[in-house]
Amino acid sequence: MSTKEKPEMQQIELSKLSLANLTQLKKQLDQEIGVYQDSMQALKLAQTKYGDSKEALEKIQPDAKDSRIMVPLTGSMFVPGTIDDTEKVLVDVGTGYYLKMSMESAKDYFKRKVVFVTEQMEKIQSLGMERSKIRDAVMGVMEVKIQTQMASQKPPQVPGVST
């Protein structure tokens, strides 16, 4: 599970591993890369959501008070309403907690969230790249092994191709 020990371990042992082990390793790496890709997508979604919320906040100016809006009750039904308070908004911060805060605090909150998510994305991206690199190396070693195996099975035809 830890990220520290793996790369070194693998770099040392790659050429010593059997083909079956390598296949297993590749499968595991593929799985990990898939997880990272899924996380990336989820984070991207969160990033746009926070970004959109922030943008929506920018649109609410003090002079928007008393303006008529349509409030979505469900995804497909709206009721008319008026904006009563342009100073404060209610923000969902997770685990069922909602905080009523000033415009500035809310904007600040979304800004922080976007920064946080972007940081996480960068981290995951570099982790994913690392895994891809290891996977490429594993695949390279696998190819060499397969070729030597094939060459040893029918030796007289071609004088061994090595890359």
């Binding site: 905080l99 805060m101 605090s105």
Partner: peptide, 16 residues
């Protein structure tokens, strides 16, 4: 949530 609660100004309100 904890960091947000800590950051909440005195005039803020909390709903659950």
């Amino acid at each position: 949530v904890k960091t947000e609660l800590d950051l909440l100004k005195a005039d803020g309100e909390v709903f659950k």
